[in-house]
């Protein structure tokens, strides 16, 4: 397949070029994928030449990075699920790829930003690493730490860690992650404080300018008192105690029926 070979070299050079030519990569990737399908390598079957498989894996890995750089998350998703075959099922045949863990880590962050915590843990559990060495792999420990901090509420640590990404691509997720964090913090503040000075609110929410904060406050419906410089959170009035009649009746009927069966 001389056609595939030259395309592949083309892709490699244009992917490595600084700055990377995203558009050209995209078209090349589309052509390469068609080529892979016709060669039966996109979803490898039976006995395939390990060399060919390695090239196919390389192409898909570049594709995954390319999708992140062009901010196309669904496309990353597709590339990742195709790559899993190579990582999981052909892991023993192929030499390990240096890009494997960065891509796995990116996938973990993607799950985190989409708030799919259950999937995050399932994926974490299925990583081909012993559990106590997870933290020693920089690509994997980053998302693990982020998840832990998010769960316990150490938001400032998440904020500080955004610059410590182990790979360039991780930063593409930072923005959406920060959006998630701000919303989390805001909902915490609404219940935990009665009022906050504007300046402190800005630092808590990691805003640098007051105008950003005001726009955010408006979006969440907070009452801003500019003269005294404070934000007051509207308390949801103490919920009125109400006896859930229907639920109680249903429960009692259920008990009666069960008792009938026992006696």
């Amino acid at each position: 397949m001389p056609d595939l070979g030259s395309l592949y070299r083309d892709l490699q050079s244009s992917f490595k070029a600084q700055p990377c030519d995203l558009k050209k990569c995209g078209t090349l990737l589309a052509q390469l994928k068609v080529g892979l399908i016709s060669a039966g390598l996109l979803v490898p079957q039976e006995e395939a030449n390990p060399k060919d498989l390695q090239i196919a894996r390389d192409i898909l890995e570049i594709g995954a990075f390319w999708s992140i750089r062009s901010k196309d998350i669904p496309s990353f998703d597709r590339y990742f699920s195709q790559l899993r075959t190579f990582y999981d099922d052909y892991g023993t045949i192929l030499p390990p790829s240096p890009r494997e863990f960065p891509i796995r880590g990116l996938n973990l962050i993607r799950l985190l930003t989409q708030n799919r915590i259950a999937d995050f843990h399932t994926t974490l559990e299925s990583l081909p690493l012993p559990a106590d060495s997870l933290t020693s792999n920089p690509y994997i420990s980053h998302p693990i730490n982020l998840e832990r901090w998010l769960m316990e509420g150490s938001y400032s640590k998440v904020w500080n860690a955004r610059e410590e990404a182990p790979a360039e691509e991780y930063k593409f997720f930072v923005d959406s992650l920060m959006g998630t964090i701000r919303n989390e913090i805001a909902s915490c503040e609404e219940t935990a404080y009665e009022s906050l000075p504007l300046k402190d609110a800005a630092t808590l929410l990691f805003f640098t300018s007051q105008s950003e904060l005001l726009a955010f406050a408006k979006q969440r419906g907070w009452q801003v008192n500019l003269s005294s410089g404070t934000i007051t959170f509207s308390r949801k009035g103490e919920e009125k105690m109400e006896i859930p009649k229907e639920k109680l009746i249903a429960a009692n009927l259920q008990y009666a029926r069960e008792l009938e069966q026992i006696v």
Binding site: E152, G153, S154, Y155, S156, T191
Partner: peptide, 8 residues
């Protein structure tokens, strides 16, 4: 932050 989250 942690206390805030615990309250929420």
């Amino acid at each position: 932050y942690i206390v805030g989250k615990a309250i929420r």
